[in-house]
């Protein structure tokens, strides 16, 4: 069996990196974005949050990032140092759906930003910034401005900026949704290579079944209105995964099952 689906949730990893305990979020307009969401994210996992729009997957990611507190429930970081407000320490990095670069700053200055905000000078940050740029293959574009780069390259800069703080947890909110398929496949492969090499934990929000199966070690399918965990399933295909994985029967089976789970989640959601 290459694929396990257990609606009750995966057996919790020994020491989760972060746990959502019955987290609910109500927006100021009264929308119930998340209801009693509980989820353990184990160290080193690559978890995709997959679901229809309005299922609260981005909201969950933002709560984990510390952008907006949950209305009820709590967030636990069993293995990390966190302050009393529950805000994520800088060891958490976030990649937005848009590259979200400062247009007036060069590639170097954009990647330097997280370190600059911690008071690290441009010179002192140089080796870290160059290392992060090398990871995404943009070491030759230090002095370029964002407007001079393609969509894929902008996203690479955005990823380099997230990596420059050497995060333990990387939160990605549909980072490749706006890119063409060829660029997306390339960035998927590069992201997996980096993940295997550095052993971060990744939470990856997507609405693409194929992308989630290709990347993840675990897929959390969510249902909408209110947003909640619908199915929690493991993708038990070995890494490294390359282009041959995309054509394998394992991949196909996983895609079909994830797709079925997503359909079931859509049917369980109140129609938009």
């Amino acid at each position: 069996m290459t694929f396990t689906a257990s609606p009750a949730g995966m057996p919790a990893p020994a020491r989760p990196l972060v746990s959502l305990r019955s987290v609910s979020k109500t927006f100021s307009n009264g929308t119930l974005a998340l209801e009693h969401m509980s989820l353990d994210i184990g160290q080193g996992e690559f978890v995709s949050l997959l679901g229809p729009s309005g299922c609260g997957k981005s909201t969950a990611l933002r709560i984990i990032a510390g952008l907006g507190a949950p209305s009820s429930g709590s967030l636990d970081w069993p293995t990390s140092m966190h302050d009393a407000t529950g805000k994520a320490e800088p060891e958490v990095s976030f990649v937005f759906q848009e590259p979200t670069l400062m247009p007036w700053a060069t590639v170097y200055e954009n990647v330097w930003l997280p370190l600059r905000l911690r008071g690290i000078s441009k010179k002192a940050a140089a080796s870290d910034v160059r290392e992060a740029l090398a990871m995404v293959g943009l070491e030759k574009f230090e002095t370029a401005y964002p407007r001079e780069l393609s969509g894929g390259m902008k996203m690479r800069v955005s990823i380099a900026r997230a990596l420059v703080t050497r995060p333990r947890l990387l939160l990605m909110d549909e980072p490749f949704a706006a890119l063409d398929e060829i660029t997306r496949f390339k960035l998927n492969n590069d992201l997996l290579t980096l993940w295997e090499k550095f052993g971060w934990t990744v939470i990856f929000v997507t609405h693409s079944v194929f992308e989630s199966v290709y990347l993840s070690s675990r897929i959390v399918v969510m249902a909408a209105r209110p947003g909640r965990v619908f199915t929690d399933m493991g993708v038990e295909a070995p890494y490294p995964r390359g282009d041959e994985f995309r054509t394998s029967t394992v991949y196909n089976d996983c895609c079909r099952q994830a797709s079925d789970a997503l359909d079931a989640a859509m049917n369980a959601s109140v129609p938009a």
Binding site: R62, A65, G66, L67, K87, A88, P90, V92, F94, F96, E98, T100, M102, L113, P114, R116, L117, R118, T165
Partner: peptide, 22 residues
């Protein structure tokens, strides 16, 4: 840009850092 403001908040930027650099 709201995303950039979120980014600055995520990295715990102070009010003055956000003002002068963003």
């Amino acid at each position: 840009d709201h995303n950039l403001l979120n980014l600055f908040e995520l990295y715990r930027a102070s009010r003055w850092q956000t003002l002068f650099w963003l």
